[in-house]
Design a protein around this nucleic acid. Structure first.
Length: 489
RNA sequence: GGUCUCGUCGCCUAGUGGCUGGGCAGAGCUCUGCAAAAGCUCCUACAGCGGUUCGAAUCCGCUCGAGACCUCCA
């Protein structure tokens, strides 16, 4: 089955086919590891996770998914510098070596990040590689050297810049983003004072060393330009090293279209002489309670913030599936609760499919192949998860589990197993039996309540209910009997 | 200032020139109390104003409103 994906490069939905047969090579711009992942980051990684799962499960491709770790960058340098207030003891002991300090801080947050990914249902084993920028300094410097050799880079005060004026003579700059050259230049000039650049719009490939900052040797034209990589060059080099260019799909947040991805396209082609990726796919941002998430508004949440509030990571994962990846997702706590209930409706249905039919006289048979085809068709339509879920709900509404015969149930169970290989928010099994110890006291109260109820002494029955709930339990009545359950928390 | 996106039932999310989605919340019923579960039923919306059309939430124009990007940001 074929996937249609929105390609920012062509600004249209395009039929996807891998460049090499049967294997999809996909690169996702990963995190800069200077802090804990927030829920916006989480969405940005749930998107490629969903994409690679659909490519594998529905399309049947093998997927080589690469996500980089940016472990050298301004904020990392600042927070890892000697005397930094944000240094944590868990990161280790700071030394006089800035490279070492930056690496320690980055490694700490990298581990936290990978742990967060696994909590949210993104599997480590689904990655082909998770390269760190600082492990590819050799690749990066080689690329910078090529760009200079090809006439698209120049050195100035120990830094190396991309010569955009030269590049634009033969190539289009602004493939992913409509750039207004006049405003673009005017905007950049403000921050550009300290640099001596031919064009204000030129971006940095290699940054000259500053005292106290991490740095690496870099030989260029017989000079050692000790310094560190520019932010955009890292992805060009790592994508080339881990997947080869061009690869099939490049993902990232919408904010990365410009300048990050635009510059990546220019650099890779200026250096390696080839295009970067056939598809560029961008996820939209999320908002929290209708406004942009920001620390000053107090609506900024890391994943661990939400888990600390007692929220379930699977509900967060499922809630994010309720909007298409390329539309703004409004994250609300009410919405999260709605998503939880919706998720459990499907979960209960899956459990029910495993139960033996009570009344075998009136069972119907349902051909699920059409249902399966429809759900998958929605996913293949640019990962339209809301529509896919709508199909699922419509189906389970029309086909209560109790009405289906054995064969239909088994087909459905098999289908939900497939679907869960994409959504990864359900358990495909019988309803688990609860083994909760009911205290003697609670059982006594429950029995007294039942007797009182039979005698129609509802005042006493209500008293008993109150006592039971105070002990953390509740009584569920059926026609001729009752059961005792533990209250949540 | 430039480049865009979007305004759909109480909330969230689809959709598309005519047949009027789905989830959550809410109401009623199955049910002789209370509480819960499940099932059934109900809850017909498309910012406003013009225009095109036999017919528009869907196309065009204007107005109002919301938001994003252009600078580190997923």
């Amino acid at each position: 089955m074929k996937l249609h994906l929105y390609n920012t490069l062509t600004r249209s939905n395009q039929l996807f086919a891998p460049l090499k047969p049967d294997v999809v090579r996909m690169y996702s711009c990963g995190p800069t590891v200077y802090n804990y992942a927030h829920i916006g980051n989480i969405r940005a990684f749930l998107f490629p996770d969903l994409l690679q799962r659909v490519l594998r499960v529905v399309c049947g491709y093998r997927v080589e998914w690469v996500m980089n770790i940016t472990d050298i960058e301004d904020k990392i340098i600042l927070d890892s510098s000697l005397g930094s207030a944000t240094w944590k003891p868990e990161m280790g002991v700071q030394t006089n070596n800035p490279n070492d300090n930056a690496a320690k801080l980055a490694l700490f947050y990298e581990r936290e990040f990978l742990n967060d990914l696994s909590i949210i249902g993104i599997k480590r084993s689904d990655f082909h590689a998770i390269p760190r920028a600082t492990d590819f300094i050799g690749e990066i410097t080689a690329l910078v050297r090529k760009i200079v050799e090809n006439g698209f880079g120049y050195e100035s005060d120990g830094s190396v810049y991309f010569n955009l004026a030269e590049w634009r003579k033969s190539e289009k700059y602004g493939q992913l983003f409509t750039i207004d050259t006049e405003n673009f230049r005017a905007g950049v000039r403000i921050d550009a004072d300290e640099y001596d650049r031919d064009q204000v719009s030129d971006f940095v490939l290699w940054k000259a060393h500053k005292e106290g900052e991490p740095s690496w040797d870099f030989e260029l034209n017989g000079k050692n330009l000790r310094g560190r990589p520019g932010w955009h060059i890292e992805c060009s080099a790592m994508g080339h090293a881990t997947l080869g260019l061009p690869f099939d799909i490049h993902t990232g947040g919408v904010d990365l279209r410009f300048p990050h991805h635009e510059d990546e396209i220019a650099q890779s082609k200026a250096g390696y002489g080839v295009e970067t990726s056939a598809f560029w796919c961008h996820n939209e941002f999320l908002e929290v309670e209708g406004t942009k998430m920001s620390k000053s508004k107090g609506n900024f949440f890391t994943l661990r913030d939400l888990l600390d509030k007692g929220l379930d990571a699977m509900d967060i994962r499922f809630a994010m599936m309720s909007a298409q990846y390329n539309s703004v997702f409004n994250f609300t706590f009410f919405g999260l609760e709605s998503a939880r209930k919706a998720r459990f409706r499907i979960q209960d249905y899956i459990h029910d499919l495993h139960e033996s039919p009570l009344d075998s006289s009136a069972l119907t048979s349902s051909y699920i192949s059409e249902f399966r085809r429809e759900v998958f068709a929605e996913l293949l339509n640019n990962l339209h998860t809301p529509k896919a879920l709508e199909r699922v709900f419509a189906y389970i509404n029309a086909h209560p589990a109790g009405s289906l015969d054995e064969e239909s149930r088994n087909h459905l169970i098999a289908f939900f197993r497939e679907l869960n290989a994409i959504f990864e928010v359900w358990v495909i099994s019988k309803r688990p039996e609860k083994h909760v110890e009911i205290p003697e006291e609670v059982r006594n109260y429950a029995e007294q309540r039942w007797q009182a109820k039979i005698e129609r002494n509802f005042a006493l029955a209500d008293q008993m209910r109150l006592k039971i709930s105070e002990l953390g339990f509740t009584v569920l009545d059926s026609k001729d009997s009752y059961t005792i359950e533990e209250l949540p928390h």
